[in-house]
Amino acid sequence: MESNLQRALEAKRFAITAECGPPKSADRKVIEEKAQLLKDWVDSVNVTDNQTAVTRMSSLAACTILKSLNLDPVFQLTCRDRNRIALQSDILGAHALGIRNILCLTGDHHSAGNHPQAKGVFDLDSVHLIETVRKMRDEGLFLSGDKLEGERPMVFIGAVENPFALPYEFRALRLKKKIEAGAQFIQTQIVYNIARFREFMARAGDLGLLDRVYILAGVSPIKTPGAAKYMRDNVPGMDVPNEIVARMESAGKGLEDKKARAQAWRQEGIRICVEIVQQLREIQGVAGVHIMAIEWEEAVPEIVTQAGLKAP
């Protein structure tokens, strides 16, 4: 087994994954620097695939750079930009490049990205993609039934689910569909509303899903009260309770100095994140956390050590 993430999860270690967003440039140094910040603290690193539909360096290329630096990359693969021919071709290529984790997503719609004029693909949806990877790996068949010739892509299959989007009762059922399609690990939307996440996990438990999949709860430190409010009000599928916005606001109160205030906000953002991680650890079925410190990779070691997941 070559996936570090799979090894950690199967050994029942509380797994930690982080996120590395490729740059809007051809500069590999950006990936190398992020790798340095993350490598001692996490089991695996997700590489986003043109996240929010903004064109960036290829996810597969960035994964390969991480692999060359001895990190275990999770290749995020979306259906937005590739039809089934390109998707299967990239799955084969990923294995050949030593990548052992693939996270299957439908992808953000391109209308909100930097090329809204693009022709969206959406040939398959995420459930079909999961099934396609499983079929290639376990049966040696392409989606069409055509046979692979020779080595199969031996990857650990991941998927995502959002417990915070409507219809809430349906989310665990959709999770079940993904597991039945072949998903082995799940990374969830960022958790700020613990109560709703607990309900989701309880439903998943009732459906008997918790023994069939590893669930890594998504977390993300908040930098400023403005960011908290933005996520609460403007990001579909995000659930940021008012208490969290209020905590961020009061953290900077009375501080005139801009630097000091920013520092106080960041400390509070990390503190909230650590508290959420600690609460998540207590929830049955949570096998790890996925820390999305977007363009703030420096926060990852702090969160990991403060939450007591690893000694500094």
């Binding site: 439908t106 719609h109 969206g120 959406f122 949806d125 989007a165 959709r174 569909k177 939307q189």
Partner: peptide, 10 residues
């Protein structure tokens, strides 16, 4: 997104 197994998380 032409989803056949929706809804998405958005």
């Amino acid at each position: 997104k032409n989803l056949l197994n929706g809804p998405c998380g958005g």
